[in-house]
Amino acid sequence: MTNTRIKRRLAKDKLLLWTIYLFAALTTVPLLTILGEVLLRGYDQLSWEFLTQPTPTAYKAMKAIEAGDSIPGGIANGIIGTMIMLGMASICAIPLGILCGTFLAENSKNRFAKVVSYLTDLLQGTPSVIIGIVTYIWVVVPMKGYSAIAGSVALFIMMLPLIIRSTEETLKILPSSLKESALALGGNKVRVMLKVQLPAAFGGIFTGVLLAISRVIGETAPLMFTALGCSFIRWSVDKPISAVPLLIWEFFNDPNLQQLIWGASLFLLLFVLLLNITAKYIAKKWNQ
């Protein structure tokens, strides 16, 4: 009697263990298949030409398909657009985010800081498509046209809360003795921040910046209403411009260009994963 009862309990124990094994293992399946699919279908497209040529027109692509050739051209217009917009967004978001994060870390009990902290959460949780709408209203409408500037503003708004949070959290976990001993040596607050606290927090903040970039680099929806897209390489910031995720969306919708989806996706995926892995590596180094 007792024995069967114990056996039953042990069987239940085993059952739970194997259920956890099974579902945990199943969770890795999507990652492996996504990586596998993008890699297998995209790797033979990734070439120097693919990275340096702009997107072909649908007509050119159609001709190539009819002739049985591979589609000429690539995603250079998207890469350059992404870099321009990401660059402009970063130049504004990184310093401003670090300053704002410092403010939150230094004044955690201040009422205004609490409001700012709460609103940062609000902004971070706002769906990116809404950031797109708002940037459209703010920038595209008054400028009477889509532009790289508008795209940058959208990316900037999305990066800001991420950088603020990582700066704040990194500064908060620094031992307070660090700041106090530096202040005791007679440094003023600015110097202590610049020479002691920020350098000590550099790893954490840098990780945060990398993760923020990797989060927004794949954003599509907000760019659809702001940067719009452009089929040739463009360097001006007041005209519509392309981006890698925008190109993927374009290829997805255009039957003639569908072959190019996988190369573009592979490029984006590799870039994002590389940023993530680097960030993880730096965070690990920094924690030791």
Partner: peptide, 11 residues
């Protein structure tokens, strides 16, 4: 968690 949502969509 880091994979862009458009790539999830493609998959």
């Amino acid at each position: 968690a880091g994979i862009p949502s458009i790539i999830y969509g493609l998959w």
